[in-house]
């Protein structure tokens, strides 16, 4: 029993002697390079392309707004023509 207890304590006491492991230098270097790597990933898409895409989207939105406004005006004018025509019919 005493021998068993001693063996158990011996095993458990190992946890007190485990040191924080040293991180390998090459891994540490790679970690330190993360900011520059992250930036180069972002730079993979050239700024010119980003601006071109943004401009295309803006142009598309503008065309859509213009088209919807034109459609509204046409509808309004056709409605007013209808009202005039039918009110004339009523008078007859």
């Amino acid at each position: 029993m005493k021998e068993e207890q001693q063996w158990i304590e011996d095993i458990v006491s190992v946890s007190e002697r485990i040191k924080t492991p040293e991180i390998p230098m090459d891994v540490l270097q790679r970690i330190k390079q993360i900011p520059s790597r992250a930036k180069s990933t972002v730079d993979l898409v050239p700024k010119r392309t980003i601006w071109l895409v943004a401009a295309s989207i803006a142009a598309l939105v503008a065309i859509n707004i213009y088209a919807s406004r034109t459609t509204q005006t046409t509808n309004e004018s056709s409605n007013s023509f209808g009202e005039t025509y039918f009110s004339h019919l009523k008078q007859l």
Binding site: I11, V14, S15, R17, I18, K19, T20, P21, E22
Partner: peptide, 19 residues
């Protein structure tokens, strides 16, 4: 092999980790 374990504790550490 945990790099923080001393050489003389290697076997005991393996039992401890298992436990």
């Amino acid at each position: 092999n945990h790099p923080g374990v001393q050489l003389e504790d290697k076997e005991k550490a393996q039992v401890l980790f298992r436990a």
